[in-house]
Amino acid sequence: MIVITRYSVPEADSVAFQTDAATAVDVLSRRPGFRGHRIGRAADDPTLWTVVTEWDGAGYYRRALSDFDVKVQAVPLLSRAIDEPTAFEILAGGDL
């Protein structure tokens, strides 16, 4: 499964956001079921960012969110995400 969180970040806060996102991904990457991540910014709107993580399944992601270190280091960033669905089941794929 993939988790896509989007963020509206003022340009003046972009460096701090990148630091916060890297910290969140680092702590999430230590949890079982984590496969990888990407951090990106919209080409046409430098205030729109995304953090994409991939997991072995929804259960792994949900259990990761329950971890103490994740609650302390990642959930503060995740709670600032735009309020929309974030977890997606992968139905088809190919090489990146």
Rank of each mutant, 00 (worst) to 15 (best):
M1H: 08
I2E: 04
V3C: 02
V3M: 02
R6V: 09
Y7W: 11
Y7S: 05
S8L: 10
V9C: 09
V9L: 08
P10T: 06
P10V: 10
P10E: 10
E11L: 12
A12M: 12
D13T: 08
D13Y: 08
S14F: 02
F17P: 02
F17G: 04
Q18T: 01
T19D: 13
T19A: 13
T23H: 01
T23E: 09
T23R: 06
T23S: 07
A24P: 01
A24R: 01
A24Q: 01
A24S: 09
A24M: 01
L28K: 04
S29W: 01
S29Q: 05
R30V: 02
R30I: 06
R30N: 11
R31Q: 15
R31V: 11
R31T: 13
R35V: 03
R38S: 08
R38H: 09
I39W: 00
I39R: 08
I39C: 02
A43N: 04
A43T: 12
A43W: 08
A43R: 10
A43L: 14
T47R: 11
T47C: 08
L48K: 12
L48S: 11
W49L: 10
W49A: 06
W49K: 02
T50M: 14
T53W: 04
E54S: 12
E54K: 07
E54C: 02
W55T: 04
D56Q: 03
D56G: 12
D56H: 05
G57E: 05
G59D: 15
G59V: 08
G59N: 13
R62A: 15
R62W: 07
L65H: 06
S66A: 14
S66D: 14
D67N: 14
D67F: 07
F68Y: 01
F68A: 11
F68K: 11
F68L: 10
F68S: 10
F68R: 13
D69Y: 07
D69Q: 12
K71M: 12
Q73Y: 07
Q73K: 12
A74M: 03
A74K: 01
P76S: 01
L77H: 07
L78M: 12
L78N: 04
L78C: 06
L78Q: 05
L78V: 06
L78K: 02
L78R: 02
S79R: 15
R80M: 14
R80L: 12
A81Q: 12
I82V: 15
I82D: 10
D83F: 04
D83R: 11
E84W: 04
P85I: 07
T86W: 00
T86Y: 02
A87H: 00
E89S: 11
I90G: 06
I90M: 10
I90N: 05
L91F: 13
L91K: 13
G93L: 07
